[in-house]
Structure formats: C-alpha cells, structure tokens
Design a protein around this nucleic acid. Structure first.
Lengths: 239, 239
DNA sequence: CGCCGTGTTGACCAGTTTCAAGATTGGTGG
DNA sequence: CCACCAATCTTGAAACTGGTCAACACGGCG
C-alpha cells in the first residue's frame, strides 16, 4: 500500500467535510451554512509527495483545506535546521488569516488533494457573515492553543515525553482508540523536527516503547497504540 | 530604584496608548476610533509583584492591556516545570479572544497596573465594528506569529542562540537602540523558562556575552546591548 | 551593617547528539 | 513473483552540550 493510499484511508470520507471531528472547536451552530457558501469559492488542487505547496514569504493569496494525504508546515533556518510547526491531516484547514505572506513553508508528505479558497473572497464574505467570522476566529484560537502546548513540549519535556506527547496528539487527531492501526504518514525525520530531537533519538525512543509494549509498529508508516494510558502519563511527565 | 519604578520608566507614557510602537501590527486605519470606544468599557486594576492575575483554566471573563510593570504568561506542568509563553510589557494586550477559559497563568513580575475589558462587551461591540474586529484579529495573528518563531527557538536553537534570540526580541519590543540602557524586569529563572534552559545556563551564557563585549549588565535588571549586529547573527545561527 | 533572596561559578554527570555501520523496507524492473 | 536497489530506519560507541548539585558572591532592603 502506498503512503498516499494509506493516508487517504486514515479518515473516512464522511468526516472530511464539513468538519473533521473535534477540529471544529468552538464553531457555533449555523456556521455550517456559511461554510457551504464558502465552498463555492474553493477549487481543487493536487500535489505529489515531496512537492512544496508554497514557501515561507510567498504572497498568501489562498487558504486551504486538506482533502487527502498529509502536509507539514515548517520553518527553515539559514543552515538547514528545520522546525515543523504543524502536521496537516485530512479535514484540516490551514493558512487562514495570513493576508500578506505565508509565514511557513508547506510541503506534501504524500500525494495530496486539497481545496483552496481565495483570501480576498473570504474576507469579503466574512464581512457580511458572522458565522464565517466566528469560524475563522476559532481556527486562529485553535492554532494558538496548539502552538502554546507545543511550546511546553519543546521547551520543557524530555525525549521520552516528547515522543509520547506526539503519539498522543496523533491519536487524538486521528480519533483513534487503543489497539487500532493508525497511519503515520510522516518520516522519522519529520517527527524529529516536530518534537525537537534528532531522528536517531526518536527511533531509539520508539524502539524502547515497542519493547515496553506501549506501541507496535507493523510498518514504518503504521502505528498501533497498545497502552494509551501509559503514553498519556508519560506525556504529562508522570514517571 | 525598585523594580516597579524601573519598568514604569521603560516605556514613555506617550507610547502606552493607543499603541506601543510596532505592537499595532496590521491594525487598519480607523481602528483607533473604535479602540477609544472600547476604552469606555475598561477599568483599572493593580497587582503587586509576585501576585497571580489569573490561573490557567479560570473562566476568561476579561481581556487586558498592561499599563505599567511587567507580566509573564506561563504554563505549568504537574511536577512544577514551567514554560513561559510570552512576556507582557506596557502597552501589550493579552488574553484577547479567550472566550471560555484562560489557557495560561498570568503572574506579575513587578508591581503592575492594567486595564481590563469584559469579553462579553467586546464581543458585542465587535459585532457592529469592523475596525475592532480587525484589531482583535491582528492580535491573534501576531500571537500566532510570535508563538511559531518561539517554536523554532525552543526546538532547534542552541543555548547561546536562544539567549541571543531572547535579547534581540527584548530589544525589538523595547524599541531600543544599541548602547542605551533597557529594563530587564524578569529574573534569570524567568528567562530560562522562556528559552527552555536552566537558570545556570542562562547565567553562564550572559557572562560569556559580557566577556565578549556583546552586552553589559550594569545591574541585575538592567541591560545594555553593545553589539546588536552580532546578537542578530547569533540568533540566526550564523556562527 | 548584616541578612536573605537571587545570581554566579565550578566540578561532575546525564541525556542527547554525532558519527558510522548495518538492517529493513518499499519500490522497480526483470 | 522474486530479486535487487536506494532510501530510510535502527543500533552502537564516543563526544558534547546543557543539567545538576553545591559552594560562594552579590546586592537590595531592613
């Protein structure tokens, strides 16, 4: 099975639209109508694994919703060091509210289908539609929330805790329960650049978790969580 | 001179309102009018050094603007580890758009004066005032931007780079030039919890920078930047 | 003038990275 | 369908960065 196929299977079609499970956050009732209207302005787009959707600094003419595949949003330092700010999974919106230029680079981690919306049209629409405004604001709030939890992870957690946090996040976002197989569309290097470690350390920690029966790795890009409770405990620093 | 006096002096009164220099970000023309209207809903508040303004999880009934002093916004882990997400200086707004509960703890690093605005009133006002909406949105965008740069620092920079980044940020926010004295209202531990290091490492790096004539520390809570260019270079990882 | 909280410095240590072999895996072509 | 190849991942050993622990210094305040 290819990575593209795998990630497409990760989220059943019914969840892709209008909301990906809890991704709606604080979206108020009624927003749905306006989102459908928004949809009229969207056009479909495809990228192949490894392609760059846009670079940090490019003019931000569009916002996006991922339909299938997986995308990473990252920042690059001059010498090549990389920090991934966010993994985008099917159903996720990104780049909303970036009106001037994109403040990160978006790269396809697998073959990708997405819908893009012109920022201008959306702003106009938002001026008359409180529902759309609220939706847009909830996306921004959610992003802040995620980023601030990410700060704690990067700044104050140990290697083991970081990897556990990552796995817990992934499980939450995949609305997956224990013992079911879930997609791991990102490489070890991607995980490392998300949690602020080296590839090697990530690999070692995953191996240790495998030995301790917390997880299984049936394939490089598949994961089974065997003991979510322990992972949560680890992520919260309860040793 | 007390810490309270020092930080009060850090920003001249003229800059405190309506905007603290570049803190306005992308605020459109016209917002000012609506902000003055917003001001009618504000009431003054005081806290003493060390006091907690509110805790993570408290109901978020108010948003704030700092008038004088300095505040830290932080998250705490169960075992006491702490990550500071943001330092609040005079003129800064915080907690905007947190409608349900605060997602961080706010603590006064010095005696503090601030203005608070009821979130409800603001939301009502924002419904009819595009200017206020845009202002509010620009605050959220700015927060995301700051947080994402913070991610790179925490995840991918070395100790020296982290401290340099912190100093550059501080210099920017204090709209200060080389060789002028600027306030350092936070303790070494606060700096450490912002950049993801220990107090000791921060102290060592600062000492090294002093030796290399990049900075001077006339007092524990005062800083003179002697070579901003080199600090920038360090912060950007150019060794 | 002396005390207490905070900051600095040193010696040692632990966790993470680095460097370098190998081992898997998944994709390709025979 | 199998075998091979390249890319990715895993593992080990050594080096290093930053952390820990502990003593000492400083300075702000009574």
């Amino acid at each position: 099975m290819s990575v593209a196929e795998m990630t497409r299977l990760a989220v059943p079609p019914s969840l892709v639209w209008p909301f990906a499970g809890d991704a709606s956050g604080g979206v108020p009732a009624g927003a749905n109508v306006e989102l459908r209207e928004l949809e009229r302005h969207g056009s479909k787009l495809r990228f192949k694994r490894g392609e760059t959707l846009f670079n940090e600094g490019d003019p931000a003419e569009h916002a996006y919703r991922l339909v299938s595949g997986a995308v990473r949003l990252c920042k690059h330092m001059a010498d090549g060091r990389r920090q991934i700010a966010e993994f985008i999974l099917p159903g996720d919106f990104f780049s909303f509210g970036e009106t001037v230029e994109h403040d990160f680079t978006a790269e396809a981690m697998s073959d990708v289908v997405l819908v893009c919306y012109p920022q201008r049209a959306m702003e106009r629409l938002a001026d008359e539609r409180p529902g759309l405004r609220n939706f847009s604001r909830s996306l921004l709030r959610r992003r802040i929330d995620d980023a601030e939890n990410h700060l704690v992870m990067l700044g104050r957690q140990t290697a083991k805790e970081k990897v556990a946090s990552f796995l817990v996040l992934l499980a939450q976002r995949s609305h997956t329960h224990e013992n079911s197989r879930l997609a791991l569309p990102m490489s070890r290097q991607d995980i490392a650049d998300f949690v602020g470690l080296t590839m090697e350390t990530v690999s070692r920690v995953l191996s240790a978790m495998k030995r301790e029966k917390l997880i299984e790795l049936p394939g490089l890009h598949e994961l089974v969580i065997r003991d979510l409770e322990s992972l949560h405990a680890l992520a919260d620093g309860e040793e």
